[in-house]
Design a protein around this nucleic acid. Structure first.
Length: 116
DNA sequence: CCATTGACTTAAG
DNA sequence: CCTTAAGCCAATG
């Protein structure tokens, strides 16, 4: 069994997973921020792709990753369409109309928080 | 190999 | 504030 999981870009994917796991509770970040932190600000879509595969990892809180506008674009990829919103709300993140309220207050930018 | 798609972002109206 | 268009990168068919 050499092809159970595509390990081709595990570096990029693993990097994404690491950052997502570091997101504090009650905070959220964007795909672009993670991509930028990884050195590829144009690969924001790839972060989303990584998240899609992240379902194989139980330690990746994908519900804390939203788009730049704070919109829950990936809610449809969860178990239920309301699961993501429910999880965020449970962590103290106000969500309205599939969008995060006061995004500026809960936004967590790895490049800013983890800047070296 | 070319075409289409996607959990995105930025710019312009 | 919302909509439309274009750009970008990798996976999938």
């Amino acid at each position: 069994m050499e092809v159970s999981i595509p390990n081709k870009h595990k570096d990029f994917f693993h990097n994404v997973y690491d950052v997502v796991r570091l997101i504090p509770k009650g905070r959220v970040t964007s795909y672009g921020a993670i991509a930028k932190y990884l050195g590829s600000p144009r690969s924001s879509r790839m972060v989303g792709w990584a998240m899609n595969a992240a379902h194989n990892f139980s330690d990746v809180p994908a519900h804390r990753v939203v788009n730049r506008n704070g919109m829950l674009t990936g809610k449809m990829h969860f178990s239920s369409s309301t699961e993501m919103e429910k999880l965020l709300s449970k962590e103290g993140v106000s969500v309205s109309n599939d969008k995060i309220e006061k995004l500026n207050s809960v936004y967590w930018d790895p490049t800013h928080e983890l800047e070296l």
